[in-house]
């Protein structure tokens, strides 16, 4: 069974329909990159999938949990709040600006939610968090505070925070856009390592070369619809749709 299924999703802000009938399935272990011009609705799609925005129409399913779907009258209904909280441990989201909690130490940033929300035993969570920090090369920073870390290090902490509940799927929204170019590679390396461990991931990115190398599938979005999708090499090297070709040639020209 697929890890994530989005079905005929529609999202409107006021009079602006930002997502028009988006359908997308992500299989276990798959890495999907979403590319597309600014304002095409990539972030909104991730925000809908991670329950930061309510969808207006359509279905959203994580593994065997149907989170939202249209009822007979066409109104989209969500699971009750107490069940949504459980769903939130099934995915993780890595933000562009990290959004670490500045008043918590690095370790506490990672362990607080599993302990206070998921009610997992503290010793187990701490041990796991230390393992994750170790993997991110940050074991010496457990007691530091976010302001004492570089942007790249903060982003690695936020990845660890997203991984602590062993989510089925991890979303990234332009994880390197807020970073200096020389810090970008350390984050891309972490994502590549996760891909090799078969972590299921959906990555919104402007790093086309990276998207091609790391992902199994690339989705090209424009104006709230999926214009083209397919194997990474195919979409990026041999796009079929004119809209995709234009977008990619513009990006390459900017280099």
């Amino acid at each position: 069974m697929s890890v994530l299924e989005i079905k005929n999703l529609q999202k409107t802000f006021g009079t602006l329909t930002v997502l028009k009938d988006i359908s997308m399935t992500v299989e276990r272990g798959e890495v999907v990159s979403i590319i597309g011009p600014s304002g095409s609705g990539k972030s909104t799609l991730l925000r809908c999938a991670t329950l930061l925005e309510r969808i207006d129409h359509g279905g959203l399913r994580y593994s065997n949990v149907q989170v939202a779907e249209d009822d007979k009258t066409g109104k989209c209904v969500y699971l009750p709040n107490n069940q949504l909280r459980k769903v939130k441990s099934m995915f993780g989201l890595v933000f562009q600006n990290f959004n670490l909690f500045p008043h918590y130490s690095i370790l506490k940033n990672i362990i607080d939610a599993p302990i206070c929300v998921q009610k997992r035993p503290k010793e187990e969570v701490v041990a796991e968090a230390m393992k994750l920090l170790d993997k991110m090369g940050l074991e010496s920073k457990a007691d530091a505070y976010p302001y004492q870390l570089s942007g790249g290090q903060q982003q690695r902490v936020s990845i660890a925070r997203a991984l602590i509940n062993n989510p089925d799927i991890l979303f990234f929204d332009e994880p390197t856009s807020a970073l200096d170019p020389e810090l970008t590679s350390e984050i891309l390396k972490v994502i590549r390592e996760l891909a090799m461990e078969h972590m299921t991931m959906v990555i919104v990115t402007h790093e086309i070369e990276f998207a091609r190398k790391v992902s199994d599938r690339v989705v090209f979005m424009a104006d709230g619809v999926i214009v083209e999708e397919g194997p990474a090499d195919e979409v990026i090297l041999h796009p079929k749709q004119q809209r995709t070709q234009m977008f990619l040639s513009k990006i390459i020209a900017e280099r």
């Binding site: 329950l51 909280r85 939130k88 441990s89 600006n97 959004n99 939610a113």
Partner: peptide, 15 residues
């Protein structure tokens, strides 16, 4: 307080 703080907390499941 930046809205990102609320969003990060929401995604992590805090009430």
């Amino acid at each position: 307080i930046p809205v990102g703080q609320y969003e990060a907390a929401t995604v992590l499941g805090y009430s």
